[in-house]
């Protein structure tokens, strides 16, 4: 099955509403782009899938982040971030 035909499923996975026109256009483009990308299969490559460079530091240290909590305080209540109601 062409990838283009799976576009509706992929859009659902990506949480993205598509119009009929978009579904048609992206579907056609995908087949063309993926056909081009399939050239990568021509290369003989062995197992390794690690990044080609080390990430030398320890994990990020979020405590050094100086986000302006006071500036955000209007959104804070009892330790939670308030967001506007999303129900229409």
């Amino acid at each position: 099955m062409s990838v283009g035909k799976q576009i509706v499923k992929v859009a659902d996975l990506a949480r993205l509403d598509l119009t009929e026109k978009e579904t048609e256009r992206f579907g056609a483009e995908f087949d063309k782009i993926l056909a081009y990308f399939s050239e990568l299969q021509e290369m003989k490559m062995e197992g390794e899938i690690l990044l080609p460079y080390p990430c030398p530091r320890a994990p990020d240290d979020p405590s050094s982040c100086d986000i302006d909590i006071e500036g955000l305080s209007r959104h804070l209540k009892e330790g939670y971030f308030l967001i506007p109601p999303w129900l229409a």
Binding site: L40, M43, M45, E46, G47, E48, I49, L50, P52
Partner: peptide, 8 residues
């Protein structure tokens, strides 16, 4: 496959 390619 793309990750393997990047290493190569």
């Amino acid at each position: 496959t793309a990750l393997r390619y990047r290493a190569a």
